[in-house]
């Protein structure tokens, strides 16, 4: 069986795969950054007591979480142009990933904030600290710690979800695999290589998260 596995064709297609890898990597990085910003803003709106920003945030989060990403991508890519708004594939893909991941990140951050004991907030309030100070000194330093592992998980999901962009013909990793398959009919080699590169990105992200966790989180001393 292994005799049938053709490494030569992988080498032949390597330059294309590297282009695909670069594209997946860049799309992911940009989407992650935008999704984090979206998530933080959505979460801030969600937990604020102000109704006109709270309810739109809830609607956004629930709509995204209750529909498949592929449907969201198709809506943006095929739906919006019929309504008169045309965005190129890559940008469409980034917007879809940003909106999708942003909703999940908003909930992750909210869970982190809620995990901080209410009593510490009361201690902050009763010593006269205002809302921003309580967030900055008491809540966020502790929320960050519990938030990093699930945030890493969400970012990994985003990278893998970016494979769906192949369906709107964004030339990323998975799309490269599809191209090679259709040109040479070697799906085993093609998707093995694709999978390998996704793993590489995964381990890079994991290393980054481990590093940031060591740097950013306080460790309770015992």
């Amino acid at each position: 069986m292994l005799d049938d596995f053709n490494f030569r064709v992988i080498m032949e297609y390597l330059p294309q795969f590297l282009i695909g890898l670069r594209s997946t990597f860049l799309i992911s990085i940009v989407s992650i950054a935008l999704a984090l910003a979206t998530g933080i803003i959505a979460c801030a709106c969600r937990i604020s007591g102000i109704k006109i920003i709270k309810y739109p945030a809830i609607a956004y989060i629930e709509i995204i979480r209750s529909t498949p990403l592929l449907v969201q991508i198709y809506f943006l890519y095929f739906g919006l142009p019929t309504l008169g708004l045309r965005i190129p594939e890559i940008q469409t893909g980034i917007i879809a990933l940003m909106l999708n991941s942003g909703a999940y990140i908003a909930e992750i951050i909210r869970a982190g904030i809620n995990s901080v004991d209410e009593g510490q907030l009361e201690a902050g309030i009763s010593s006269g600290l205002n809302y921003v100070q309580r967030m900055r000194f008491i809540i966020l330093p502790q929320a960050l710690g519990v938030t990093i592992p699930p945030l890493l998980g969400q970012n990994i999901v985003l990278v893998k979800d970016s494979a769906l962009l192949s369906l709107i013909s964004v030339m990323e990793l998975t799309r490269c695999g599809q191209t090679m398959t259709s040109e040479r009919f070697m799906p085993a080699e093609a998707f093995f290589t694709v999978a390998f590169f996704y793993m590489c990105i995964y381990f890079c992200l994991k290393a980054m998260a481990d590093w940031s966790q060591r740097k950013l989180i306080f460790r309770e001393a015992y």
Binding site: Q120, E122, A123, S126, S127, G128, L129, N130, I138, F218
Partner: peptide, 29 residues
């Protein structure tokens, strides 16, 4: 804000900030 500064409050469950040292806890406000 000012009034709360003039009133100290001690809770049953202490509610110290676990990520800060004793000194940082006291200095924060």
């Amino acid at each position: 804000t000012q009034l709360r500064g003039e009133i100290g409050f001690v809770f049953q469950q202490f509610h110290l900030y676990p990520h800060m040292t004793v000194l940082q806890n006291i200095m924060l406000a």
